[in-house]
Amino acid sequence: MSKKTDSLKIVTANRLREGDVVYLTDSGKWSIHLNESRASRDPAAIDAMLAEAAADVAARRIVAPYAMEVSEVDGILQPLSAREIIRAAGPTVRADYRQQENDARSRAA
């Protein structure tokens, strides 16, 4: 039987191509929506999620996966640290700048 920890954790990373913050879901896909993520208090389950993420790193889908602590409030997952609150809120750069950069890359290719 696995030992339980006090903290609820999910696995997060960044999508390699766009840099978006993503979260590992129950289906093994990556979502930009934190509340779609798979959460666990079981250290073995968290290790298994990190192993799943490592395969996606090897496939060059994501970078820098790690487990982060969350709390569940009324069925909604909430990040606990200031860093994760900022990451979950979305890009801190205006979307039109990002689109201009993508357009410039397309023209250069």
Rank of each mutant, 00 (worst) to 15 (best):
S81P: 00
L8E: 05
V63T: 15
D103M: 09
E18F: 05
T12W: 01
S27V: 08
A48V: 05
A45Y: 00
I46C: 03
L50I: 09
A13C: 02
M1V: 06
A58D: 11
S40P: 04
D26A: 09
Q78K: 14
L34I: 15
R107S: 08
I62C: 13
R98K: 06
R41P: 04
E84V: 04
D56Y: 06
S37K: 08
L80H: 04
H33T: 14
E101Q: 03
S37P: 08
T25H: 10
R87Y: 07
I46T: 02
K9V: 02
A13P: 01
R17N: 14
I32G: 08
G19V: 14
A82M: 07
A54H: 02
A104R: 11
Y97N: 12
A48Q: 09
A109K: 02
L8T: 06
A55V: 12
W30A: 15
R87I: 11
R41A: 13
I76Y: 05
Y97M: 14
G28F: 02
P91A: 15
D96E: 15
G19H: 11
E101R: 03
R98F: 01
G28N: 06
S2L: 09
D20M: 14
D47K: 14
D26Q: 07
A59G: 11
A104H: 05
Q100A: 12
K29F: 12
I32W: 01
A104G: 10
W30S: 15
W30N: 15
L8A: 06
D96F: 09
S37E: 12
R87N: 12
G75L: 15
R38L: 12
A95S: 04
S37N: 08
G75E: 13
A53C: 11
N102P: 01
D74T: 09
E18P: 03
T12G: 07
E69V: 14
S27F: 04
A45I: 03
A64Q: 14
A82D: 11
N14G: 07
R98H: 03
T92E: 15
A54N: 08
I85R: 12
E52F: 00
A53Q: 10
A54Q: 09
E52V: 00
Q78E: 15
S27L: 13
A82C: 04
V22T: 02
Q100F: 01
R94F: 09
M49F: 01
A67Q: 06
N14S: 11
I62F: 08
M49T: 02
A13T: 00
Q99D: 08
A82H: 02
E52S: 03
A45D: 07
S27G: 06
P79S: 07
G90R: 03
N14Y: 05
P79E: 10
D26N: 08
V22Q: 02
N14D: 10
A108S: 08
K9W: 01
L80W: 02
R98I: 11
R61P: 01
D6C: 07
E101G: 00
P43M: 12
K3C: 09
V11H: 02
Q100K: 08
S27W: 01
E84M: 12
L24S: 11
V22G: 01
P43W: 03
D96N: 14
I76M: 12
V63Y: 09
D47N: 13
T92R: 14
A82W: 01
V21M: 07
L77Q: 11
T25R: 12
E18L: 13
A13R: 01
V21A: 06
M1R: 03
S7H: 03
D47P: 05
I10L: 11
A82L: 09
